[in-house]
């Protein structure tokens, strides 16, 4: 469904991604793991159109996404939940959700989908009329995921969804991801929490300095725990803002 081939991303003189190739099949949950600066987030940014790659192809459903701005990729069915969640803190929860459905015209179906998200995340129903800035970190993450789902994406990009959350909330986030996967949502997940991401994903890519060094299922990678120990120390560092 998504094929990334020979992707190269540069910021000025710095190359963040070197000829990376990744593919995601329909209904698959694929994880990108690796230390800071491995180019994981840059890859998602390129797919969603936030950065223009220096070279390489990004094909989604047979159509190239390269050069499309984010407001167009979301119309093609790609939704990004950005790192740090980026909810609109000055707007209400309801308004945040309404913005998630910006590209849709079917008001009744949107209303129905909003109900579904409020069922999925009951706390958002309680906080529906409140400013989203007052939500806790875990609630903001729920809002960000619900908001992205309201565009009815065919590909969901999750950038560090568990970052900065308390352990219990991390569990909740991974539960949500698992549930989405059971519902057939095609997902590309970027995670610093390599153990859990690899264990949950159908396949994973291990990135290091902008290159995929290994890829495969959890067993092929020698077990999620073994993989994580490779990166112990590196994966728990604070990420740059």
């Amino acid at each position: 469904m998504l094929q990334i081939a020979d992707l190269t991303i540069r910021y000025g003189g710095i190359t963040a991604v070197h000829g990376l190739s990744v593919s995601v099949d329909e209904g698959e949950l694929v994880a990108l793991v690796g230390p800071n600066g491995a180019g994981k987030s840059s890859t998602l940014a390129a797919v969603s159109g936030l950065v223009t790659p220096a070279a390489g192809r990004i094909v989604f459903d047979g159509e190239s996404l390269v050069g499309l701005p984010p407001e167009e990729t979301v119309r093609r069915g790609v939704a990004l939940v950005p790192e740090g969640r980026n909810i609109f803190g000055s707007l209400t929860v309801a308004e945040n959700l309404a913005l998630g459905a910006t590209i849709r015209r079917d008001r009744r179906a949107v209303a129905h989908d909003v109900e579904r998200e409020l069922d999925r995340f009951p706390i958002l129903r309680e906080r529906y009329g409140q400013q989203a800035g007052y939500l806790s970190g875990g609630e903001q993450q729920q809002l960000a995921i619900a908001r992205a789902l309201l565009s009815r994406p065919r590909l969901l990009l999750l950038d560090e969804p568990s970052l900065g959350l308390a352990p219990l909330l991390v569990d909740a986030v991974f539960d949500t991801i698992a549930e989405l996967r059971r519902g057939g949502m095609t997902t590309l997940l970027v995670e610093q929490n390599a153990t859990r991401a690899v264990a949950l994903a159908d396949r994973s890519y291990v990135l290091r300095t902008g290159r995929a060094v290994r890829s495969g299922t959890a067993e092929e990678l020698g077990g999620a725990a073994a993989l994580a120990s490779e990166y112990l120390g590196e994966t728990t560092e604070e990420l740059p803002a």
Binding site: P70, V74, P82, I87, F88, L99, T102, I103, R147, S151
Partner: peptide, 8 residues
């Protein structure tokens, strides 16, 4: 940026 991600 986030608004554009929403399709604005």
């Amino acid at each position: 940026t986030t608004a554009r991600l929403m399709g604005v």
